[in-house]
Design a protein around this nucleic acid. Sequence first.
DNA 1: GCGTCGATGGCA
DNA 2: GCCATCGACGCG
Length: 185
Amino acid sequence: MKKLGHSFYQRDAEKLARDLVGTILVRRVRGRECRARIVEAEAYLGPHDLASHSSKGRTKRTEVMFGPAGHAYVYLVYGMYEMFNIVAGKTGGGQAVLIRAAEPLNGWKADLSGPGKLTRAFKITRDLNGLDLTGDTLYLVYDPDYRPRTRRAKRIGVEYAREWKNELLRFYDDRSTAVTHRFRP
DNA sequence: GCGTCGATGGCA
DNA sequence: GCCATCGACGCG
């Protein structure tokens, strides 16, 4: 299976979010390796998208969102949960994809059915903010043998985003049990 | 199964 | 004063 390179991430966030469903996330920490299949992802389109952090402009927090694609954007929400995003599109575009859920592989038992649970299990914290995802500690691989049944729906937890709250920018694998039942249309 | 609520800290 | 959340609790 092939590691995803920078060119894969340089597509627009909406397309990247769809294409990331079914790929495999790999985490290496202290000689151990964890793998999981991504089953849910959300696109955040840039400064014009009121749900996107980049709509607040370029700040210390959002800086990496405006950086090159294929890097990790990790931030803290509700004082206790880290969110793992992948920067997408052209440099300066402020686009990213939030990884919301995954299914553990290789006999690994873990509940990855939510963005906060996923980062906890993968030990993804803010010290990985800005990390190049084509390196060895956190990266993705393409699985040519898996064909997800991908559906799209509204994003979660963006009620504040006015008309943008209704955009169908969340993509999930309909075959996965890790996508919470209540988040299905 | 569902609605409600509190935890907890960085940010503008 | 918000949050790109989660888990505990009460219901009947």
